[in-house]
């Protein structure tokens, strides 16, 4: 039977289009306009062409911030995704334990980002912080304000503490939606726990894992507030991620042109990587089906 095409339905999408235009498209267009111009204030602009793009693309400062950001995203994905799956697998499926676990898991997600940064900034201090003092008492030389590796460990731990819950909740939602019949069939076949995980739970969680990976990647690639509050991008530039560098350039130095060019490059990298993640993961799901 032929499908009936009713294009009037597109009018229903108009409010969303207007909203997206005002919140995303028009600001992005302004950034594109800034990226090819220079300004010294007073809303006066001078044509600069592609100069800022060339400058950004060949600058060591940008390369280093990009490298740090990619490293950070790779590390937190490598920790948070398996950890989130593992915690979700151990959570109870029925009884009083369910709401208790769900509330406990949701708690870190409810804390504002700058508060998380402040908590970890104090927590890690060697003079008054519980983590800093305990680690130092164990004889480990730890000081996130002076040592780049300590700063990285602190920022990664903070992100894992803050965001693993999101992965857990998404995986848990995927797990509880698996019908019991699958487990019964696996029991009849004498499947091991690993086989159940590999052939039932993991494929069934694939959709939610896609969302988890995308959300965590995009969020970690755009991370700003938490590391800025904890380390301010230091020591030196060791935790200066792209967004921190961008704010320094746009707000601190008022270099709107170079900052706009950097924003566009940053946006394109996020768009490309998200598209690759999305495509690879949805195709993997299609092949499995």
């Amino acid at each position: 039977m032929d499908k009936t095409w009713n294009n009037k339905a597109w009018f229903m999408v108009l409010p969303v289009l207007v909203l997206v235009a005002f919140s995303a498209v028009i600001p992005l267009m302004t950034v594109v306009n800034y990226s090819v111009q220079d300004t010294f204030g007073n809303n006066e602009f001078f044509w600069a062409g592609t100069e800022w793009f060339k400058e950004t693309l060949t600058s060591d400062r940008f390369h280093q911030a990009l490298w740090r950001n990619l490293m950070f995203s790779a590390i937190i994905l490598a920790i948070e995704i398996p950890l989130g799956i593992a915690i979700a697998l151990t959570m109870p499926k029925k009884g009083i334990g369910v709401p208790v676990c769900l509330v406990l898991m949701a708690l870190p997600l409810l804390i504002p980002w700058n508060v998380v940064g402040t908590i970890w900034q104090v927590f890690g201090r060697v003079d008054i912080g519980l983590l800093g003092r305990s680690v130092t008492a164990l004889g480990i030389d730890y000081n996130y304000t002076q040592d780049p590796i300590d700063a990285w460990v602190t920022v990664i731990l903070m992100d894992v503490w803050h965001w693993t819950s999101l992965v857990v909740l998404l995986c848990y939602a995927g797990l509880v939606s698996i019908p019991d019949a699958y487990y019964q069939a696996a029991r009849i076949d004498g499947a091991s726990k690993w086989s159940v995980f590999r052939h039932i739970q993991l494929p069934k969680m694939q959709r939610v894992l896609l969302i988890a990976v995308l959300l965590r990647f995009m969020d970690s690639f755009m991370i700003y507030t938490e590391p800025f509050v904890v380390t301010g991008g230091g020591p030196g530039n060791s935790t200066t991620f792209l967004s921190i560098d961008l704010v320094k350039m746009a707000v601190g130095q008022f270099d709107l042109g170079p900052a706009a060019a950097m924003s566009i490059i940053y946006f394109l990298i996020i768009l490309l990587l998200s598209w690759v993640f999305y495509t690879v993961m949805t195709q993997a799901g299609e092949e499995r089906r």
């Binding site: 267009m29 306009n33 800034y34 090819v36 602009f45 044509w47």
Partner: peptide
């Protein structure tokens, strides 16, 4: 719309 700092090349790009 001067706050958007339009130029002809960017306008043509978006068009």
């Amino acid at each position: 719309l001067s706050w958007m700092a339009w130029t002809w090349p960017t306008a043509l790009f978006f068009i």
